[in-house]
Write a protein that binds this DNA or RNA. Sequence first.
DNA 1: CTGTTAGCGCATTCAC
DNA 2: GTGAATGCGCTAACAG
Lengths: 364, 364
Amino acid sequence: MVASTLAEVARLAGVSPATASRVLNGSARKPGEDIAERVRRAAESLGYIPNAQAQGLAKSSSGLIGLIVHDIADPYFAAIARGVQEAAREQGRMVLLATTAGAPVDEREAVAAFAARRADAIVIAGSRSARPGDKDGNLELAAELDRYCRNGGQVAVVGHAVVGASASDGYHVVPVPNEELAAGLATELAASRDDRFVIIGGPEGLFTSDDRIRGFQRGLASAGLPAAEVIRTDFNRSGGFEAGMALAAQIKASRTADTARADTGRFCVFAVNDVMAIGAAAALRSEGLHIPRDATIAGFDDIETLRDFRPALSTVHLPLEEIGRQATRRAGGTLEDGAAAPPITGHVILRRSTVSGPAPERIT
Amino acid sequence: MVASTLAEVARLAGVSPATASRVLNGSARKPGEDIAERVRRAAESLGYIPNAQAQGLAKSSSGLIGLIVHDIADPYFAAIARGVQEAAREQGRMVLLATTAGAPVDEREAVAAFAARRADAIVIAGSRSARPGDKDGNLELAAELDRYCRNGGQVAVVGHAVVGASASDGYHVVPVPNEELAAGLATELAASRDDRFVIIGGPEGLFTSDDRIRGFQRGLASAGLPAAEVIRTDFNRSGGFEAGMALAAQIKASRTADTARADTGRFCVFAVNDVMAIGAAAALRSEGLHIPRDATIAGFDDIETLRDFRPALSTVHLPLEEIGRQATRRAGGTLEDGAAAPPITGHVILRRSTVSGPAPERIT
DNA sequence: CTGTTAGCGCATTCAC
DNA sequence: GTGAATGCGCTAACAG
């Protein structure tokens, strides 16, 4: 790495480094246009590129914003990442990416790495975990974040605060109304009171999953319906598929048991995210079951890429990009906490995968 | 940002900064274990985090690797990004993200920003464009890359070299056999010789799209079939949808024209990527057309999230993550050029969306 | 308005 | 094996 330096530019332009700096970067002090032009020309001819590391060292700020996700290839995170990227661009910052598979230990490491790079802000997009095995990891993560904040860093986390994190200033949470929305979904779905509700959830302790489960159960309850059975599995497509296979067996069994018509006790499945729902649907289909005739199914997130899936998936829309943008703005100082920050909202979307009653004629 | 410094640690440990540095970071010189322990303890108690900016300045290398994509929310890029991230982790580097929507001007800017941050390497994942309007942009991009390489930077670009880039050392290309694979797909599809082939392509000048179109036409030709009509549209889902609507009209028109049976001159659509194919399929469906009965369709990429789409999409599998990994390894010096680098390969996957002959009975 | 000076935090020559 | 200098490239106080 042998690039030309500001000093060289200054020399070539016949000015001092300070003046060159003032010209080339936005400074309060404006040098004369004549000299400025000379500097610019010199910089151009030398192909001068400012050394951001040195700038950062001098100003002690880096123009970097760290983003932590479980998996960047997961469309949920990819969508949030787009929002983060967008907002970062507005702020004139670049985004540093870290993927952690949701392991607090890795997250701690990522935070430390961001801190080492003196990232101006950190956005944690991945769901928090309260699983027993993650307890220590969470504590360390909280400590690391705390230290980062004490050193002037800004943190925004999507959904819930990190377990054990003490609310210092510079620590922001972008609340996502998972529970309320899941309750709303349940309310809508509860119209078909004869259904047997089943929830396909992620591992216990994953906040996002738990919130959605809790909300759904609450919605069911307030509709006077019994709580749904909960199947725990991985928070991804494979998990959904596995649970779907188990469900298929259950459905078939219940069919042979009561020789009643299929529409009595039809299963209504709520998978806590779209990707799991798609997996479950694939499993049911592979077992010869038809949606929504033999079972209805709903997801959560309204992932864009999945909207062309058929039967169209009922789900809860979440403004993923906006969540990413807002988290970034909160952390980046572009947005104040409180009133100025429009709360994240979503809405239930009912589509073909949960049409109630007997299945209509085939519609492509 | 007021973190504790190496000097503070050294003072607390009662040693010189030099020694502290040697202990805390891997240096050739190994201080005595007794003193080393003191330093480590001091660092721990102070919550010392090395300042990567300063380290970078001193060593002139940053541990950063820049990634340029069109859109991180596009599953194609997201998958590549995962591979890049993985490889970067192996190298102990972090990835810096930039999204450019494929505009060479923005790409140039991103490269400059990466260069400013003294990124050790840059991976350009987005397809190259040779559109007239991008000509100047490409030249500037090439110049910027050239400069970056001359200064010791490493560049890896997926697919094709940047237009106008002079092959300096440090400039690597990960070839993707788009053309060959598309030809292979055409060959397989050509079995149903009575089909009318149509290609839904991206804008002219987009290399990835053009390669796939060219390959497909070649495959058709070598099967003794006439060239397919090419519909140009945007390289995304919307583009596919639009083209699909146009196609639907065409199909309906051709039906009323010749009162022959539908299987005569059935349309076989090749969309140059999966996302476009899905869009086109959605359009056909919305017009009451059924796949594969009224038209067959194939895509390209084998996007993971789209595999549960029904009818299952015939496509060409590309090892996206591997592509990302390999590009990163090439650029990161973990992999030599030439023999050591296993070439990227893919393979045709035929699924229900292109079953030949009359549509089978409904299968879910 | 311009130039001079002094660090930012660290790695790395050198002497000891 | 350890410590004392020096410089990485730049910005921000100062002075002129």
